[in-house]
Amino acid sequence: MRIKWLPSLLFGVLTLLALLVFTFPFIWMLLASFKTQVQIFSTTQMFVFKPTLKNYIVVFQQNDYVRFLWNSFLVGLGSTVASLLLGLPAAYAIARYRLHAFATVALIAKIIPGITYLVPWYILFSKFHLIDTVTVLIISHMVIGLPLIMWIMIPFFEAFPMEVEESSWIDGSSKFRTFTSIVLPVSLPGIITSSLLAFIFSWNNFMFSLILSGEKTKTLPIAVFNFISASSINWGGLMAVACIIIMPVLIMAMLTQKYVVSGLAAGAVKG
Rank of each mutant, 00 (worst) to 15 (best):
D132H: 03
E215T: 15
P185A: 15
P185S: 15
P113K: 02
Q37M: 09
S173T: 13
F227S: 12
S229W: 05
W169A: 05
V136R: 05
S167P: 01
V164H: 05
S174V: 01
M150F: 06
Y56P: 13
Y259V: 01
L210N: 14
A240Y: 09
W169K: 04
M150E: 11
M46S: 11
G76W: 01
V164T: 06
L197M: 06
P7W: 12
L137F: 02
G12W: 01
V224C: 07
W28L: 15
P185R: 15
A268S: 15
M162Q: 05
T44Q: 14
T52E: 14
P147N: 03
H129L: 11
P113T: 03
F22E: 02
V269L: 09
S33L: 10
A101P: 00
P147V: 07
W121H: 12
W70K: 05
F125V: 13
S181G: 14
M153Y: 13
A32K: 12
I112C: 01
L212S: 08
I123A: 09
K50D: 13
P221M: 15
I144R: 06
I251A: 04
G237C: 09
P248Q: 13
H141W: 03
L148V: 08
W28C: 09
S229Y: 08
A106I: 07
G214Q: 11
L53N: 08
S229I: 03
V261K: 00
A265I: 04
S140E: 09
G214I: 02
G271F: 00
G114Y: 08
Q39I: 13
S213A: 15
T135S: 08
T52V: 08
V183D: 10
S79I: 09
L196K: 07
T15E: 01
K4S: 13
L220T: 08
S202D: 03
Q37E: 09
L184Y: 05
A109V: 08
